[in-house]
Design a protein around this nucleic acid. Sequence first.
DNA 1: TAAATAATTTAAGTGAGCTTAAATTAATTA
DNA 2: TAATTAATTTAAGCTCACTTAAATTATTTA
Lengths: 219, 219
Amino acid sequence: MTNISKEDYLRVIYKGIEETGVVNPTMVAVHLNISNAAVTDMIKKLKREKYVSYNPYKGIQLLQKGKMEAIRLVRRHRIWETFLYQIVGIPWYEIDEEAENLEHSSSDNLIDHLERILNYPEFDPHGHPIPKKDGKIPRQKKCFPLDQIKIGNSGIIQKVNDHSKEFLFYLFNSGLLIRKKIKVIDKRNFDGSIIISVDNKELVLSDKISKNIFVEKIK
Amino acid sequence: MTNISKEDYLRVIYKGIEETGVVNPTMVAVHLNISNAAVTDMIKKLKREKYVSYNPYKGIQLLQKGKMEAIRLVRRHRIWETFLYQIVGIPWYEIDEEAENLEHSSSDNLIDHLERILNYPEFDPHGHPIPKKDGKIPRQKKCFPLDQIKIGNSGIIQKVNDHSKEFLFYLFNSGLLIRKKIKVIDKRNFDGSIIISVDNKELVLSDKISKNIFVEKIK
DNA sequence: TAAATAATTTAAGTGAGCTTAAATTAATTA
DNA sequence: TAATTAATTTAAGCTCACTTAAATTATTTA
Ligand SMILES: [Mn+2]
Ligand SMILES: [Mn+2]
Ligand SMILES: [Mn+2]
Ligand SMILES: [Mn+2]
């Protein structure tokens, strides 16, 4: 088991739990774009080495050891994203891709340096919390996927849960950035799409999009 | 052939040629800390794919394609070193280790950004030239290994040719840094050691050390 | 120039991380 | 609850980058 591949599995499991509460082998396979058989194999090893617990059809859990490793990796990932965005000047929709590689190639010491330069940020440019060196996770504002906001209500975008370049590029060009205020104008029940206003412009968003934008409710 | 391992081979070959003029499989094996048999295998592949030419006992040469790749990697390595040193604040004797990993994990685009932030430096903190985006190598001052400088003569340290932490840490603590002026006070023929002065202090350096310090002669 | 030495290659084998195809098992639905 | 569907595992096999041990070949030295 190489470190890189172990770390990738743990990151996917961690983020899966963070986002949907449960993770099964199929989800891991989809995220890593490999076969289910490969995942079965690796889960066995991760289980044998006490990174995870696993019962078929019951989902994968992170054990203490696995959670620590995952959080360390997520910390590296999110600090890199923040650094690339704030200091290096890489666009919002490209930082994830770049951080995906750098996260496996930097010492904890380097990450601590970057964190200091950034003045100990609590959230990355996608609105996700950056674990502290001791593993603590900054408290997040309570927020909801945009598709659950009622017509007429407003909110502030606090987080996006999809890091794909295309998705973020679309948001970027539509002005749907973190901290932006939006209002739900209307909803179409037949296809789940939603009409919102942002910057005095109206936008139609598919449910695929609105499910991945998380807003804090405001009155 | 994975990218990382191919790149490591090409870097070692490139630096070997840069430093000693010729490279044979044994040297590559020593630098990468692997067996000769593994090198034989990989050289075959690199040859088949036109990265290098090779004749047993005659040394390995870089072909156009291999040289380009190697220069691209060396560029990434040296820009990272410079960035880690100047912007991040990692000590001189630790940057090589860190850059060794980062060099394989960053896009050309990211490297270009770092280069811009650094204001297009020509040399890295060890005094080595940083290849430009187009592959051009900045011209270096003519310099000589310290052990070849005659008694009574002075020079300015322009380059070090060993990146090991222990070596650089020793130089660092002795004040033997790039741009420092030194003077050769005496030489001991029986063991090749050399006595120099730097910052009004006298130091005894073994030939192992002085061979790896390159100075520009001054009168 | 023959013997010694050093460099290189060949041979056989390992472990990691994958693959596809087939078999099994659990969950869901009619 | 039986049948269908979906999730998971097993089996067999591949490639890559290594290893060690033995064999070969070139270079150096006596
Ligand atoms: Mn990300
Ligand atoms: Mn992020
Ligand atoms: Mn270096
Ligand atoms: Mn350097």
